[in-house]
Structure formats: structure tokens, C-alpha cells
Simulated assay, not measured.
Amino acid sequence: MTLALVAGRGDLPALVAAGAQTPPLVCGYEGVPLSGLEAELTFRLETLGTLLLELGNRGITQVCFAGALERPALDPSKLDAETAPLVPLFMEALKSGDDGALRVLLELFEKTGFEVIGAHEIAPDLLAQGGVFGSYWPDAQMRKDAAVAAAHILEMSPQDKGQACVAANGHIVAMEDARGTDAMLGDVNDANGGILFKGPKAGQTRKIDLPTVGPETLQAASDAGLRGVIVDAGDVIVLHPSECKTLADSLGLVFWARTGE
């Protein structure tokens, strides 16, 4: 066993584990329930240094991060001796936006000698394949809204806010923040039949935190009164695509992975 899977919430970790050639060593964050997996090692921010040592002792050479984790708070009383020297790095990361914090984490593992690989490198079928999922096709307005939304995410990339927004009639209605996509959609009151768009920020690493959609995303978009969910093919992970296709049809929702944009 040479691969460790640092697993968070949601279905993605189990799907990645299923796509691995050999079962990975599953590492779970303390207090975060896993779906379809059991953690062999658990850790918290204050014991990350010990985790790095343990991974090395077990012959781990590659690490993959999959699943959602809220940005943790640092509790000095729980620091162990191996992690204490990393506190300045942690404090800088916790002041950064989501992408900044992830980059610090990525660099920490790489500097320790591990190769960090993306979930899509283990399970490439998870990446959105170009085309329409289901029976409903995007109209001209939805295509325009998708272009507006994609441009907005790129424009907002330096602020490190999020990977999703809602657009309607050529205007941005809502933008994802640290609370996540579901919270943003919960705040949408009158989207005028707009669309949810998800895509990566400019310069975003593909090793950690690629945008992800799944059946729950489609349901939340429909509940918010949207007419479609649009993603960039090859840049967004789709969980349970067959289920998404069936659900999109039952909701009368467009689900489109656009290409060549």
C-alpha cells in the first residue's frame, strides 16, 4: 500500500477508493463522519505532524485529498510535539482564503516528500464528460448565462471566494462563498429561472478541491427555482452521473457539461 486517501464528507472519497488499483490507507479527520469508508487513521490539525510521520513509516508515497472539510480552528492545548513547529504555517493558512489554505496544505505534504495526486487521476471517469446529461437541452439564454457566470468566476478568482455562481438573464444573482454551494442556493429567492454554474477558479490547482456536483446539487438547484446546472467539461467532478441524468429528467432540469469554452 503506497497511497493514502485523506477523506472528508460526501460520496467522493468512497468513489475514489473504488477507482484505486489497490485499496488506499484511509485517513479521516477527527469528528467528520465518512460515507462508505472506515478510517484506519484519524487525525486533526493539531496532530498533522504526527500523521505525516506515520504515513512515512507505513511506506506511503502518494496522498490524495477527497471530500469536504470545513476549515478547522487551531486548539493550542491539543498540539503534539511533532506538529508544534508547523503552527506558523497553520496560522498563515487559516488567514488565507480557501484556495490559499489548500495550497499551504498541498505544499506541506509535498515538502515532506509525498506526491499529492488529484482524485480525477485515480478515478478519471469522475470528470464531467462533455455533453448534455438527460433529455433537456440548454437554450440560447442559458448558454449566455453560462458564459457570464464562467467569466465572473474567473474575474473573482483573486478574491478566492468560490467555484460556483447563479446567473439569470445575463446577470449574476449569487456567488458562492466559504459556506458552500448549498448555502448560496438557499439564499436565492428570485433567480428568474436562471442557472447554477460551477467551474474552477483561474490558476486553481487540480490536485485538491476540483469543483464537484452530484444529485444533491441538482436537487438544491431545482429547489431554488433554477432551470439548469451547467459545468465545464473536464474541469468538474460529477458524482453518480447516471443518477444525475435520471434526476435531471425527473426535475425537468438541464444538466450540461459545456466543451470548447
Rank of each mutant, 00 (worst) to 15 (best):
V6S: 07
A7I: 01
G10M: 05
D11R: 15
L15P: 02
A17F: 06
A18H: 09
G19R: 06
L25K: 10
L25F: 08
E38D: 13
L41K: 07
L45R: 03
L45H: 05
E46D: 04
E54W: 06
G56W: 13
N57S: 14
V63T: 03
R71C: 06
A73E: 14
D75N: 04
K78D: 10
D80Q: 05
T83K: 04
A84E: 12
P85W: 08
P88V: 03
L89S: 08
F90S: 06
E92P: 00
A93P: 00
L94E: 09
K95D: 15
G97F: 01
D98E: 14
D99Y: 12
L102M: 10
V104A: 15
E107R: 15
K111T: 13
I117S: 08
I122R: 01
D125S: 15
L126D: 09
L127M: 09
A128F: 03
Q129V: 15
S135H: 12
Y136G: 05
W137T: 14
D139T: 02
D145R: 03
A146K: 01
V148I: 09
A149Y: 02
A150K: 06
A151P: 01
I153D: 02
I153T: 05
I153V: 13
S157K: 05
Q159F: 01
Q159P: 06
Q163M: 10
A167H: 05
A168Q: 09
A174T: 06
G186T: 00
G186L: 06
V188C: 09
D190V: 13
G193A: 03
K201Y: 00
A202I: 00
I208P: 03
L210G: 08
L210I: 14
A224Q: 04
G225E: 01
G225V: 02
G228N: 02
G228Y: 04
V229C: 01
A233V: 07
D235F: 13
V238T: 02
S242T: 14
S250V: 04
V254W: 06
W256N: 03
A257D: 00
T259E: 15
G260D: 12
